[in-house]
């Protein structure tokens, strides 16, 4: 048997085993991305539960005295930027599937920029609030949302940046091969990662819309 010696792992593998492990790896990236969204859903559900619980309880009539509202211009801007990033990620993936890698890279780099601006605005908004964090149930849950949204944006922008950086480093390995069409392991893992990342940004935009409605519109 002339199996391939895998230097980095220190043991031999048959091509079938290599392929099998690669499929497991691609599947892990794919299902891991979805499971991560499931975890995030429960985190956001806890915040939504807190919002509705305190709103319904209205302890001491202090849920939202004087209909206090966070600056709506910030809220709409942050949401618009999140939604734009999600659209860019989806558009980029669509172009990538057509084989136009450069369009995908431009879209994702733009997404990095828009999400960084959203992050900056989300932090800046905390300095312009017309209420104290503990002024009411509304203000408390709003601060909770701000912290979670900052964390979400940090995770999202990290994912965008590292994926697009990977695509640029990948050129060395793939040569003239298109990552969308190549059957090389790196390209297959990359596609699974792009799919998960795009899915995550779609989720960020949807959850952003929900909390925009809760904190700025209702």
């Amino acid at each position: 048997m002339t199996d391939m010696y895998n230097k980095s792992k220190g043991y031999t593998e048959t091509p079938e085993e290599i392929e099998y492990e690669l499929r497991a790896k691609v599947g892990s990236v794919w299902s891991g991305g979805r499971l991560f969204i499931g975890m995030y859903t429960f985190l956001l559900a806890a915040l939504a539960f807190a919002y509705f619980y305190l709103r319904t309880a209205n302890s001491g009539l202090q849920w939202r005295p004087h209909n206090m509202t966070a600056p709506t211009a910030f809220g709409w801007s942050i949401f618009a930027l999140e939604a734009l990033t999600a659209v860019l990620a989806i558009y980029g993936q669509w172009r990538l599937r057509k084989g136009v890698v450069l369009d995908w890279q431009v879209a994702v780099w733009t997404g990095v920029l828009t999400s960084l601006v959203a992050l900056f605005l989300q932090i800046w908004e905390t300095t312009t609030l017309p209420f104290y964090p503990g002024a009411s149930g509304y203000s408390s849950t709003f601060i909770g949302w701000v912290v979670i949204n900052i964390a979400t944006l940090v995770v999202g922008v990290y994912w965008l940046e590292t994926t697009v950086a990977r695509s640029m480093r990948m050129r060395k390995e793939l040569g003239k091969d298109n990552p969308e069409l190549s059957s090389v392991a790196t390209a297959r893992l990359f596609r699974a990662n792009v799919a998960s990342m795009t899915y995550f940004w779609g989720f960020v935009a949807l959850s952003g819309a929900l909390f925009l409605a809760l904190f700025y519109i209702l």
């Binding site: 807190a50 509304y138 408390s140 601060i143 909770g144």
Partner: peptide, 23 residues
């Protein structure tokens, strides 16, 4: 939320300020 109550002075679990210990 508990850490925010302690550090950022939010009121998730403070009934007097619109929170609730039942939360």
């Amino acid at each position: 939320f508990g850490i925010l109550d302690k550090t950022a002075q939010t009121a998730f679990y403070v009934s007097e300020h619109g929170g609730s210990s039942y939360l």
